[in-house]
């Protein structure tokens, strides 16, 4: 299993008008770099409409758009700090809208194999200090450093 975080899937000041555009733009980066199949973006966008992935954390809102592994080639987590917050429905409660500032786009092939990644992401969600480091990064370098430090899990083939 490769690493979770790739430098070229970390974005600072990423811009999108709405959740749909965001998923398309960010998903296109995954696709262009070969991480996902050409069905991924549509699948993530459709899932987001039906089952939104926004999450209101303690002081920050995020979203974690994703879909099932059949659309994924190489698992990876992309992180985008948005220039302007984008509205997402809240997971489990689509009527509840949140203004997401940070996006964790997930290309998960098999949750059992990538369980340590999911564990790291959850740890960040529930840790205000880690979230602050990500949200208050002043430039791409700081963001990348915070991402690597806090969720940059690497595992080695057994």
């Amino acid at each position: 299993m490769a690493k979770a975080i790739y430098d070229d899937l970390v974005f600072y000041d990423f811009e999108a008008a709405d959740a749909s555009e965001l998923i398309r733009k960010l998903g296109a980066e995954f696709e262009r770099k070969g991480f996902v199949k050409d069905t991924y973006v549509d699948a993530v966008a459709a899932r987001e409409l039906e089952y939104p992935t926004g999450l209101q954390l303690d002081g920050f809102a995020v979203a974690m758009p994703h879909t099932s592994g059949v659309h994924v080639n190489t698992p990876a987590i992309g992180v985008a700090r948005l220039k302007h917050p984008v509205t997402f429905g809240h997971m489990g409660d689509p009527e509840h809208l949140v203004e997401a500032e940070l996006i964790f786009m997930m290309a998960i092939l098999d949750p059992d194999d990538q369980i340590e990644w999911l564990r790291s992401v959850m740890k960040v969600f529930t840790n205000k200090e880690m979230m602050s480091e990500l949200c208050f990064a002043n430039n791409r370098e700081e963001l990348l450093e915070a991402v690597k430090k806090n969720i940059g899990v690497e595992t080695v083939d057994a």
């Binding site: 089952y51 974690m64 994703h66 099932s68 592994g69 998960i108 949750p111 564990r119």
Partner: peptide, 14 residues
């Protein structure tokens, strides 16, 4: 969860 895999696995683990 919606995908039947990712967020449900996170919750399951915790």
């Amino acid at each position: 969860c919606g995908s039947g895999a990712v967020s449900s696995s996170m919750v399951a683990m915790k």
